[in-house]
Computed example of a mutant assay.
Amino acid sequence: MLRTYAGLQLSPKVQVVVPIEQVVEEIARSRREICPIPGVPEAILGVVNIAGKLLWVIDLADFLTEVLGLTPRSPSRGDELTLVVIRKDPRTEPHPDEEESTVTPFACVVCDRLVTLTLNSTHVTPIPDPWRPLLRPLFSGLIWISPPSDAASRRFPVGLLQVSALFDALSRHSSLTAGELR
């Protein structure tokens, strides 16, 4: 079965994919437009007003680094940010006649524009045993990507991010000061 994914380049060395139906939009915002919230983890940059709604802005590369216990990277100093607004799987949202979902989408910082990939489900491979305890809570599998034909490097793995697990992880990292990401 073919499925379309959004490739999110979170940092020069970190890329993940999410099902395209969970991506709402890609927008550019200045760091000055993000209102910081005291008492939240550093990876949560604050909130931004997008079309009259306040959305949490997450540096997803930093958040994944923290959750997975990896070495922190140097923070980006640029003023202009590219944000990708992500929501939970729309198939789990209530029917239009039902009460509106209480889960608000969030915006994550990416370092490059969104790319789309259409892949067969056979391209998704399970997470290898040595990585499974670390990656399994947030990733459902790996997709092996081939670099452009002029590149000398080999294929590299990209994690298939489980957006609902990410929402759960973000909720667990919220503080009493900031409230939940809902």
Rank of each mutant, 00 (worst) to 15 (best):
P12Q: 04
K13C: 00
Q15G: 03
V16H: 07
V16K: 01
I20C: 10
I20F: 05
V23D: 09
E26D: 11
E33A: 15
I34H: 01
I34N: 00
C35F: 10
A43M: 07
A43R: 06
G46Y: 02
V48Q: 02
G52V: 05
D59Y: 05
F63Q: 08
E66Q: 08
T71H: 04
P72F: 02
P72E: 08
R73M: 12
L81M: 06
L81W: 03
L83W: 02
V84Y: 00
D89E: 10
D89P: 05
P94D: 01
H95G: 07
P96L: 11
D97Y: 02
D97I: 12
E100R: 14
T104I: 15
F106A: 09
C108A: 14
L114S: 06
V115F: 11
L117S: 09
H123P: 10
H123M: 12
V124I: 13
I127R: 04
P128A: 01
W131A: 14
W131I: 09
P133L: 06
R136D: 14
P137K: 05
S140W: 00
S146Q: 08
S146N: 07
P148Q: 12
A152M: 08
F156H: 05
P157S: 08
V158E: 08
V158A: 10
G159Y: 12
A165R: 15
L166F: 00
L166M: 03
S171I: 01
S175F: 06
S175V: 00
